[in-house]
């Protein structure tokens, strides 16, 4: 009896596992195809019976990519813009989230709700006024405007996630620090930040990921290669090298690779952050 039951459950387990592998395979196929294309020689890319994995592994596409002088500039620009906007979002967001969690003051609920609602604002509505504002202020095609526009989503998201983490800090811990002689700002630096460091870094990484690949603002607010980030850069490449999918997929792989690395490293904390954020009230 138990034998049969055991065998039955093992069979079910096997079927479950096969199904899971199949689904995961299908769901990762698009990415897999793109990555494998970037390692294929020309003849294998432009064929009517392509294979999933390259038959002859080659870095030719990457070599071609290296020969494009703008490409590293795009990556560098993305790095600058994403890093600065993530850093500002974290710095500003930590102060705001601290105030919303540990202070009691009139208007707290309203400000909290207003800040949290802003992350639902449509970027497409912001982009025209920002464009004209930027051109009036001579900020078109600068890092400054890209960093600022990235904050329009990075900051609300950072606050949203930070609130989830901070609400898990026991209030007594913050109070202990103040009894021990910290003022509020010292409390943030000596206790809140160190205690929450991994989580805060994860949030930084997450906003960095979003900033790195931001599309709409970067497309409309940059005019020259000097300030193009990865997204509009890629957009330009897709125009210039229309059908050279070896080169394009290589570029895409290079653009995504750091994000995958960062995400894999900080996944636990990012997921944890989303988890606590998804529970907390507005």
């Amino acid at each position: 009896m138990t034998m049969i039951k055991k065998r039955y459950s093992r069979l079910r387990g096997a079927i479950f596992y096969c199904g899971l592998v199949l689904i995961t395979g299908i769901l990762s196929l698009p990415a897999l195809v793109a990555i494998s294309t970037s390692f294929k020689p020309y003849s294998e890319i432009f064929t009517t019976n392509p294979t999933i994995l390259p038959q002859h592994f080659t870095l030719a596409s990457y070599q071609k990519l290296l020969a494009i002088p703008e490409f590293p500039v795009y990556l560098l620009n993305s790095l600058i813009v994403a890093a600065f906007s993530a850093a500002i979002a974290i710095a500003v967001g930590v102060l705001a989230a601290y105030a919303l969690v540990f202070f009691r003051f009139p208007g707290r609920r309203v400000i909290r709700q207003a800040l949290l609602t802003t992350y639902m604002f449509p970027a497409i509505t912001l982009v025209f006024p920002v464009f004209f504002g930027a051109s009036r202020l001579n900020l078109l095609d600068t890092y400054t405007i890209l960093i600022l526009t990235n904050l329009s989503f990075a900051l609300p998201i950072a606050i949203w996630l930070l609130l989830g983490f901070f609400e898990k800090i026991p209030v007594e811990l913050e109070r202990a620090a103040r009894v021990d002689g910290c003022n509020r700002l010292q409390t943030v630096f000596h206790v809140i930040l160190p205690v929450m460091l991994p989580s805060i870094m994860a949030i930084g990484v997450f906003t960095f990921i979003l900033g790195w690949g931001e599309y709409l603002f970067a497309l409309t607010l940059t005019l020259t290669d000097a300030h193009r980030t990865a997204s509009p850069g890629m957009h330009a490449l897709m125009g210039n090298y229309r059908i050279d999918y070896g080169l394009l997929t290589a570029a895409g792989t290079v653009i995504v690779f750091p994000l995958v690395l960062l995400f894999a490293l900080f996944q636990k904390h990012i997921v944890e952050g989303m988890t606590s954020a998804s529970h907390h009230r507005l």
Binding site: P30, A34, G213, M238, G252
Partner: peptide, 18 residues
Amino acid sequence: LLLPWVIPPIVTGLIFRW
């Protein structure tokens, strides 16, 4: 399974165009 989430839209666009 979570990875597509971090892929920038322009790259997703490229992947599916291809």
